[in-house]
Structures are given as structure tokens and as C-alpha cells.
Design a protein around this nucleic acid. Structure first.
Lengths: 211, 211
DNA sequence: CCATCCTTGTTATATTTGTAACAAGGGATT
DNA sequence: AATCCCTTGTTACAAATATAACAAGGATGG
């Protein structure tokens, strides 16, 4: 089985977004060239990314938007819903419960946890905040597949361990720390500070980065 | 002037975080090996990343934590404060106004805008929500250097244009769209949906990604 | 039906990025 | 002071990634 690079996966997400946009605009087909322009990559890159998974286009004509969109959705597992548990209902956590980009793509935050007794039992955007004490059990009972971690650094690793104990196989980690997981669990880190720091670097050393 | 890769910049941020952590723990020095382990990279990678900017270690001994930390801060422009304007006080925007990881690193959100008359004038975490109508003027008056964009896709490009018109040279974009800026402006995109979609891909095609 | 113009999928090439190897610096120990 | 053990900085090498080139498929127009 061929390995797919992180970069390719990220680009697929972006192509997918472009396809949704073009579909809404009423377009029927799209060429690798246009798809490339919309995403600041080369046409060759687009074609090579797609060729990892099959041949979806028609020579001389381009790609059928609806068809390619459906294919990418299938490849990326976006043609279904995912049960997601949110851990840590702080500023970030609250924002994520109601994040359109999650919901519209089928990531359903149906379970939320916090350790603060003052928050437990409250309802945020239709989701009841549960007691963290029962995390493993609840996660298992609710058949949660993905865990979103937005707790402080100090408790991130232990929450991750408990999510894994509850059967979660994918974790989106917002805590700025390098968490450890068993070999069969996937982690993606989302550290917003890192991006703004990259901006700080670029502004400080404009000659060292390509505009 | 040598070009520094995106990956290197991201890793520097992470090394920096590790150094802060180790410093708080009371350590004096650290080896490339330890720094590597803490960040899931090789020791050679750490040394090469650092060597882009100078020779900060002592052979046989490792790196002085305080010294290296200070050097990375200087390199990345983290030894100062940055004036930041936030555009769009929705769920994400509200969370960012009070985001520790920004504040602790000197990114000061002192100005916030929204187009909703119902929000204008309100104070969130000590920041007054201003009328978007005066964005260019306010941004210029307040000497804002970085703009954070958390508005809907439909208005993202126009807000970016106006930030640039106000003199902003760095933009952190949360809108899931590929915005265009003049050559001398830097953009970093933060799309949380892309990361969870990568997770969806990994869970759907476990054989295609390295655990 | 032939010629022309597009656009894909794939292979070959170039570039970038990461890893390994090692000489040289430096402290500790006897 | 000589030896031993570490650890860096750098150079050489390997792997991964991106770009370019092109043959082949397919539409269109005369």
C-alpha cells in the first residue's frame, strides 16, 4: 500500500473545499489548472495528488466536479459522520462545540467533558457538559471515535490516556505539548500559537522567507 | 541570505516551548538529543535547525537553556510585543481574545472589530468591540502590525484587503479560503477543519499513513 | 474523417528536506 | 597530562517531495 504524505492529505482537503465552492457556483467541470490556481499549487501537483487514488478525470475535458468531490469525500472519510468528544470546555472548547466547519463536514460533537463542577450539567449549543470523572465509560458507551483535547497542558496527557482507554483512535490536540499515544492511535496537533509565531518570524526576518 | 524552511520555523517554536518547560523545571543545560526526544525528531535535525542561525551550543556539554531560549526568542521576534487586531468576534474570535498562548508570547489583541451593530461597543475580556466601518483608520492609528481574521468566508477577502490598506503586514487567517495579498504581506492559514479531516483520512485509511 | 487543440496520467528530472557520519572541542577522571 | 566519554557543528549521503515533460485520450470544427 503506497504511503500518502501529509502534504497531499492537506491539499486534498483544500481541493475538496474548492470543489464545493465551484459546485455552488454552478460549474460542471474543472481542470487541474484551475484547481491549482485556486490553491496556489502547480497543475502537475494536483494531478499527481489525485493519481495516488485513481484516475478521476477525462483527457481533454478535465474533472467532473460532482464526481471528483464525491471521490475525495470517500477517500477522506467525509461521506459519513464521526462521533466526537470534546474535553475541556474553556474558551477554545466552547468555540469548537459550535464550529460550522466541523459540523458541516460530519464531525458531531455529541459529548463534552469538563472537570469544573461549576460547568458540569450546563448546556452549551445543545451539548450537555459531563463530569470528566466518567470519561472512559461515557466515551465507550457513546461509541466516540475522535477526541478533541482543549484542556490545559497540565492535564492533556492524562486526558489523552483516558480517551484512548475509552476506545478513541483519533485525537485532535489543542494543548501545546507533545502528547504520547499507543501505536494504533492517530494524533493531529493544532497549535494556533505556532502559526502566529511563524508570522512573527517572517516579519522579523523577511529576507529568510519567500513572500 | 539563506532560506529557512517552514518546517524549521515550526520546529523552532516547538523547541522554544520545550526550553521554557525545561527552564521552569530548573534545568540548566540540554542536549540536542533530549530536545529531539521531546519533539519527536532526530538530534541531527535539532542541530541542523539551530545551525541555520549560529552556533549556540558547547561541545561535550550541550546548550545552555537560558541562552538558547533567548536566542530563539530573538530569532523569531518573540523578545518583543506585537500589536494585533482581531476581525470578527464570533465563537473563534471570542476565544482568541483571551487565548493565553497569544498573550504570554507578546501578541497583544488590543483592537477588535465586528460588523454586527449588536456587538459594537461591548467589551470582551477587556477589549472594546469597534465598528468595522473604521477599520483602516483605527488599524493605522493604533499601529497594528498583525491582523487575525475570524470572519465568515464571504467577507474574509475584503477584510484582508482593508487590513492591508491600514498598514498590516502579517495576517493570521482562520477563514477556510485562500486569500490573496500583495507581495510584501505575509499570510498564515489556520484551518482547524483541515486537521480533523486529516484525522478522518487516517482513520479511514490506516495503512496509508505512518502511525 | 482528418487535423487541431486541450487536458489527463505517468514517467523522468530537479529540488528540497531529513538522516547519518565524523572530525574537533571540551570536560572529567586517574 | 593523557585518556576517555560526550556533544556539537558540518559535511556527505539518502529519502521524500515537487516540477516539468510528454505520450495518449478525447473533443471540436471544417
Amino acid at each position: 500500500m503506497p504511503r500518502i504524505s501529509d502534504s497531499t492529505i492537506h491539499r486534498l482537503s483544500r481541493y475538496y473545499r474548492t470543489l464545493k465552492y465551484m459546485h455552488d457556483k454552478g460549474s460542471q467541470t474543472i481542470s487541474s489548472n484551475i484547481l491549482a490556481q485556486q490553491n496556489d499549487v502547480t497543475a502537475a501537483q494536483v494531478r499527481k495528488d489525485l493519481s495516488c487514488f485513481g484516475a478521476f478525470g477525462r483527457r481533454g475535458l478535465g474533472y467532473d466536479i460532482v464526481d471528483l468531490k464525491r471521490n475525495i469525500a470517500r477517500i477522506m472519510g467525509l461521506d459519513r459522520t464521526w462521533k466526537v468528544a470534546l474535553c475541556g470546555v474553556g474558551n477554545i472548547g466552547r468555540a469548537l462545540i459550535d464550529y460550522d466547519q466541523f459540523r458541516v463536514q460530519g464531525f458531531q460533537i455529541t459529548v463534552a467533558f469538563d472537570s469544573d463542577p461549576g460547568k458540569i450539567g450546563k448546556v452549551i449549543h445543545g451539548v450537555v457538559i459531563r463530569n470528566e470523572a466518567n470519561l472512559e465509560r461515557d466515551v465507550r458507551d457513546e461509541k466516540v471515535e475522535i477526541g478533541v483535547v482543549s484542556v490545559p497542558v497540565s492535564s492533556a496527557q492524562s486526558i489523552v490516556d483516558r480517551l484512548v482507554a475509552g476506545g478513541v483512535r483519533g485525537i485532535l490536540n489543542f494543548a501545546p505539548i507533545n502528547i504520547k499515544v499507543p501505536k494504533n492511535v492517530f494524533v493531529r496537533n493544532e497549535n494556533m500559537a505556532i502559526e502566529i509565531e511563524a508570522l512573527s518570524f517572517a516579519l522579523t526576518n523577511p529576507k529568510m522567507v519567500q513572500y
